[in-house]
Amino acid sequence: MSDPNQSLSTQDYAALEFQPWNPDKQLEEELSPANFKSFGEHCRLAYSLTLKTKEHLITASREFGEDEAIALLDALIFTSEQAMAFMEIIDTARIRLTSALSVIAMDGGEFSIEKRQAK
């Protein structure tokens, strides 16, 4: 897996400073198992839609009903927005853990961002 911050070295990551985020009740609710079930269902549905032709989607939308198809579109838009927010969380966590491991590496640990980038 490649790192989008390939220009950063172990030393660069080790030098990063950050503060913990404040707890966010709304975000914690969005990360609940029930919401992830819906998120996963929408992702699977989105994937299935990518396997269809335009003609098939037109026919299915007509048969399903325009209002229902628009509701599905709204759900996919919401899911897309959620995914982008989740990616920010995941990327922030990845950078912070890489920073911590880089400090350990500079103290003689085994981690090396340069070795990981070479994979």
Score class of each variant (00 low, 15 high):
Y13Q: 00
S80G: 13
L49S: 03
Q11G: 01
F64V: 03
A46M: 04
Q82S: 09
R96G: 00
A93D: 10
L73H: 08
S7L: 07
F86R: 02
E68C: 08
L16V: 00
L45P: 01
L57W: 09
L73R: 14
A83L: 09
Q19V: 02
Q82C: 10
D3H: 12
L76Q: 12
A46Y: 00
E17Y: 03
T53A: 08
A85S: 14
H42A: 15
D24R: 06
S61K: 04
F18M: 02
D24V: 04
L51K: 15
T10Y: 01
A71H: 12
T79I: 04
N5A: 07
L49M: 13
E30C: 08
S61E: 05
L76E: 05
A34D: 13
L97T: 12
A34H: 10
T92F: 02
S32F: 07
E28Y: 14
F64T: 12
K37L: 14
A60M: 12
S80K: 05
S38T: 12
A83P: 00
E66W: 06
I95M: 08
D3T: 14
A85L: 13
M87F: 10
C43W: 00
D24W: 04
K37H: 09
N5S: 07
E68Q: 12
K54T: 13
A85T: 07
M87K: 11
D24A: 13
W21F: 09
A75H: 07
I89T: 05
S48I: 02
F64E: 10
I58N: 07
S61Y: 05
A71Y: 06
E81F: 03
R94G: 13
F18R: 02
I89R: 15
I95V: 15
P33I: 05
I95W: 00
E55W: 04
A46D: 01
A60P: 03
I58A: 12
S48D: 12
G65E: 07
A71S: 15
L27W: 10
F18W: 12
Q82F: 05
R44E: 11
P33Q: 11
Y13L: 09
F86T: 00
I70C: 08
F39Y: 15
E30F: 08
S80N: 10
K54I: 07
L31C: 13
A83D: 02
F86H: 03
Y13R: 00
D3W: 11
R62S: 07
D3V: 03
G65K: 05
Q11L: 06
Q82A: 10
A46E: 00
H56P: 01
A34E: 15
P20Q: 00
M84S: 06
K54C: 11
R62P: 02
N5V: 03
S7G: 09
S38R: 15
H42R: 13
Q19G: 01
L97F: 03
A34L: 09
D24Y: 06
A93T: 04
S9P: 01
I90Y: 08
D74W: 06
F64C: 06
W21K: 14
F86N: 10
F64R: 12
P20H: 00
Q11V: 04
S61F: 03
Q82K: 10
E81H: 05
L73P: 01
L51D: 13
A69N: 04
F18S: 14
Q82N: 09
F78W: 11
A93E: 07
A85I: 03
W21L: 13
M87G: 06
E17M: 09
E68F: 03
P33V: 09
